[in-house]
């Protein structure tokens, strides 16, 4: 289903959900939950957004049933730890590549995905100062390295 333009800012979180559907359904579930909550704040009044959000809610309810055996879904505190560990793992992989001078598409994507997952952590409550800093750094690094590679420059 096409994403209404009013909900454009959740498109990357929804794409991350799609990419993790098989690899890590818990990540997919919480990315969609974040998109749902954010989408409702952005616009849940216009018919096109309501329609989109109702579909997304249907999908979340189905996923919750299918994943009911997973404690990361039935207990949000476990889910919180799962998403935080995953985000930090992504961040550390990209950071390690960065510090070793290995710049490539995969590490840019890891930095960016980590930053999106730090956004997702906000469904569990206010982000810690450390996670806010990690998110800022990961997003900046992803943009910076992407631009360097695009312009044929070596990142510093």
């Amino acid at each position: 289903m096409a994403l209404p333009p009013q909900l454009k800012s959740i498109q990357h979180h929804l794409r991350t959900a799609q990419e993790h559907e098989k690899r890590d359904p818990v990540v997919a579930y919480y990315c969609r939950l974040y998109a749902m909550q954010t989408g409702m704040k952005l616009d849940s009044k216009t018919p096109e957004c309501r329609k989109f959000l109702v579909k997304l809610m249907d999908q979340l309810e189905t996923m919750k049933k299918e994943l009911s055996d997973s404690e990361s879904i039935s207990q949000e505190i476990v889910g919180n730890a799962h998403i935080e560990n995953y985000a930090i793992k992504m961040f550390l992989y990209a950071d390690n590549e960065d510090r070793s001078g290995r710049f490539h598409k995969n590490m840019i994507k890891s930095f960016y995905t980590a930053s999106l997952l730090f956004d997702v952590l906000s469904v569990f409550g206010e982000l810690s100062e450390e996670n806010i800093q990690h998110r800022k750094y990961a997003r900046w690094k992803a943009t910076y390295i992407h631009n360097c590679l695009k312009n044929g420059e070596t990142p510093q």
């Binding site: 939950l33 409702m40 009044k45 309501r50 109702v54 809610m57 309810e61 949000e76």
Partner: peptide, 27 residues
């Protein structure tokens, strides 16, 4: 019709909020 439209919209919005709360075991 404007107010009917508005109340339909807010009822649907409410339903969505309720479903979200239920999904998160907050009811």
């Amino acid at each position: 019709t404007g107010s009917v439209g508005t109340s339909v919209a807010s009822a649907e919005q409410d339903e969505l909020s309720q479903r979200l709360a239920k999904l998160r075991d907050q009811v």
